[in-house]
Amino acid sequence: MTPGVGIWRCTKCRTGFFPQPLLCARCHNDRFETDRVHDAVVEEISVIRHMLGQENWQPRRIASVRTSDGQLITVGLTGEAGPGATIELYQEENAPFGRDKT
């Protein structure tokens, strides 16, 4: 588990992206530097109660969140945070997650 979520920031216009782009969608620059965002606000939540092809599936929460840098990303949500709550972001390999802010 890695604190924060990795984003790609355009070296020219400084816009941050997730997932990784090839060209900046704003200025079409081709150079990026990596950065991390640590906080986000929860906008919408869903509970995934059924997964096609899976037996014994345990319901899990996902959320659409807006990071403190402005990216709209989908995270796995642990804890009890609801819409409007600020959460702490972390990453497991390439997958972004969020949990209640301590």
């Binding site: 997730f18 995934i48 059924h50 899990r60 989908t74 390439n94 997958a95």
Partner: peptide, 18 residues
């Protein structure tokens, strides 16, 4: 594959639920 499936996002059902 890299950013949604590992969350157990439920395929398009999870996406359109949001």
């Amino acid at each position: 594959r890299e950013h949604l499936a590992p969350l157990g996002h439920g395929g398009p059902n999870g996406v359109y639920a949001l």
